[in-house]
Design a protein around this nucleic acid. Structure first.
Length: 646
RNA sequence: GCCAACGUAGCUCAGCUGGUAGAGCAGCUGAUUCGUAAUCAGCAGGUCCGCGGUUCGAGUCCGCGCGUUGGCUCCA
């Protein structure tokens, strides 16, 4: 080993230090303040503990309490303090493990005889503050597997022993210790507990050991921590902002939809919501004409025999609703459709097809019902009754590539319209519970991967996450609270054509099996509605706004003119109303603004005399008076072009 | 489905350790005719989610059910 090594710092300067120098020592050699704030290092881009001895030339960035990565180290350390606090308060408690991702939260699972209550969390939080005030140093120990087992066994940590056994052979086991607490952990951790500037426990919940439903349930505590109180306040303020744009809140505020116990997890769209919903559907319909789709309307309830044939009965039954008629015969059972694909297969099979007919693109906005377990439903994003911009493409194997590429154009065109920018793409491959020939799977997976590569689209491989009938590509966007939602999906299916014995006549006159592509772009209209509402924080672009224009007469005497203005707007195909209530202008504006109407047209005597209206754009000030026909043309144009601008 | 928390007027919420329900906004009525984010006054509005139980007495305590929310698990 060389006696000196070269450390390249972010400013490009190079420091020569003896091999074995730690990250913290490098920091100290630069400045005492830096050393004081150091919580870790980024060595060649990898997070390392500040106690790590550097043994070769590296590019090093010192991570301090001010860096985002520093926050992660602080939360990770707070996690240990949490576990320490719980063990101090309830000495018999066994610890399991913390969280992988410390970008915003930390968590710890405990084997504890009951659920933690809110008052427990308060006590624990107090205890944590006490530990932080003790300013305990963190120590890092590298140990052998047996040593780690011995320490944990001695402390009665049964769960931890299982965890140690799960650590792959050959991996270095490190322990972190502060005060009386010690835990198996990769680190990194802060220097001393006092570097945790602010800590807050968020909630408690149950969580299965190792995330497996069949294992015992442990008690989990969530919390967050920051370098300073100020940073923590900023975090909570941001959370509050996000809550305000929660689609469930906006749905009530804007009178768009509601939920009722009479039909749990199934939205009722109010007149305003129905307008938005139908605009989304109409958007897809208009594009279908461009992209060569044929829309069909299919039944809601089917003989169970259909689902047995499609395979849904065996693989998806637990998510299906069954429908029994009053005097139904014993041997004929019915079920509400959870998907459209089988009925499209029935349609395809009902006529003969030539290769010249393909690809056949069948679209269906049919209402679907899926039984989702009670604990998983939420707002519009996970419901039991919904419809999709669903379509099935029947094509020849050679047509898969072109179809997929055309779908990418379609998908990106639609997402562009909404301004969705952070889209993640996932390619999911053969799961364990799969039907069909593995060779066929492999071929399908290759076609999808190649199509993605051809387009230069970055994607993540989700090995084993495909549907049971075929591989798929999912498109995921992020909502306002940072949750991920799958919207578009493209799924290849070699099995349904098999099961329904679908055929077409090829150019050589022989019967061939078509390939089926399931695809949705908005995904479920309901989910898209919710995600989009949060995305826009309720400020829907003009074409989607349920009420596009509201005319505000200043006094009663102007009402007739205001109605004329509204009629001109209606004539132009716009959704317009008049607020003719006997209220002051400020009041009407406030209401129009809170309902997020994109255009408010103020009309007083001056405007009535001149044939103008005073335009007020959503969230902006008075734009002054303009001739009525100009304003109508402007708004009509924004709607027609589906512009996001007013 | 599992672990919790919550459920009071259309909405947002108050109601301490059990003593018979309250505010603001919305609604209705009247007055006000008003120029860019809330005019004033009055009135009305509640099986306190449902069903049981404890108690002289339950919005409040306990049990069960339903629903919602946050996690877990699941998610074709």
């Amino acid at each position: 080993m060389a006696s000196t090594i070269r450390i390249t710092l972010p400013d490009g300067s190079i420091k020569e230090v003896p091999a074995g120098t730690t990250v913290l020592e490098v920091a100290a050699s630069i400045g005492t303040r830096l050393a004081r704030e150091t919580v870790a290092g980024l060595a060649d881009g990898r997070m390392v503990d500040l106690r790590t001895a550097l043994d070769h030339d590296v590019t090093l960035r010192i991570v301090t309490t001010r860096d985002p990565e520093g926050g992660e180290v602080i939360r990770h350390s707070a996690e240990h303090v949490l576990a320490d606090a719980v063990k101090r308060l309830w000495p018999g408690t066994q610890i399991d493990a913390g969280r992988q991702d410390h970008s915003v939260k930390f968590q710890y699972d405990f084997r504890f005889p009951r659920a933690f209550r809110p008052e427990d969390l308060e006590r624990i939080e107090e205890e944590m503050r006490r530990i932080i005030a003790e300013d305990l140093p963190f120590r890092r120990l590298e140990v052998g597997r047996e040593e780690a087992r011995r320490i944990m066994a001695q402390r009665g940590e049964e769960l931890k022993l299982i965890r140690i056994d799960d650590i792959p052979e050959g991996e270095t086991i490190t322990l972190y210790e502060h005060g009386p607490f010690i835990d198996v952990c990769r680190g990194p951790h802060v220097q001393r507990t006092s570097q945790i500037g602010a800590v807050k426990l968020l909630e408690a919940s149950g969580a299965y050991f190792k995330g497996d439903e069949s294992n015992e349930m442990l008690q989990r505590i969530y919390g967050t921590a920051f370098a300073s109180k100020k940073e923590m306040n900023a975090y909570f303020a941001r959370l509050e902002e996000m809550r305000k744009r929660d689609h469930r809140k906006l749905g009530v505020q804007l009178d768009l939809f509601s939920f009722h116990p009479e039909a749990p997890a199934s939205p009722f769209f109010h007149p305003r919501g129905a307008i938005v919903y139908n605009e989304l559907v109409e958007l897809m319909r208009s594009k279908y004409r461009e992209y060569g789709y044929d829309e069909v309307i299919t039944p809601q309830i089917f003989d169970v025999a259909l689902w047995k044939r499609s395979g849904h009965y065996d693989n998806y039954r637990e998510n299906m609703f069954f429908a029994d008629a009053y005097d139904e015969v014993e041997d004929r059972k019915f079920s509400v459709k959870p998907m459209n694909c089988p009925s499209h297969c029935v349609l395809f099979a009902s006529a003969s097809h030539s290769y010249r007919d393909l690809p056949l693109r069948i679209a269906d906005f049919g209402r679907l019902h899926r039984y989702e377990r009670s604990g998983v439903v939420t707002g519009l994003t996970r419901v039991r009754s919904f419809s999709q911009d669903d379509a099935h493409i029947f094509c020849t194997p050679e047509q898969i590539g072109p179809e997929i590429r055309s779908l990418f154009d379609f998908i990106f065109e639609i997402y562009e319209l909404f301004g969705f920018s952070s889209i993640e793409i996932f390619l999911s491959t053969r799961p364990e519970k799969a039907m069909g020939d593995p060779a066929v799977w492999q071929h399908a997976e290759k076609v999808l991967a190649r199509s993605l590569d051809d387009r230069g689209a970055a994607y993540t491989l989700n090995a084993g996450d495909g549907a049971f009938y075929g591989p798929k590509i999912d498109f995921v966007v992020h909502d306002a609270i940072g949750r991920e939602w799958q919207l578009a999906t493209i799924q290849l299916d070699f099995l349904l054509p098999e099961r329904f014995e679908l055929t077409y006549v090829g150019s050589d006159g022989t019967e061939k099996r078509p390939v089926m592509i399931h695809r949705a772009i908005l995904g479920s209209i309901e989910r898209f509605f919710g995600v989009m509402l949060e995305h826009f924080a309720g400020d829907l672009p003009p074409w989607l706004a349920p009420e596009q224009v509201r005319v505000l007469p200043i006094v009663d005497a102007i009402n007739p003119y205001a109605e004329k203005v509204r009629d001109a707007l209606l004539e132009a195909g716009l959704r317009a109303t008049v607020d003719s209530r006997q209220e002051k202008l400020g009041y009407k504006i406030r209401e129009g603004e809170s309902m997020k109407v994109p255009y408010l047209l103020v009309a007083g005597q001056r405007e009535a005399d001149a044939g103008t209206v005073a335009l007020r754009l959503r969230h902006r000030r008075d734009e002054g008076s303009h001739p009525l026909d100009e304003v109508v043309a402007r708004i009509a144009n924004a709607v027609k072009t589906r512009s996001r601008e007013l």
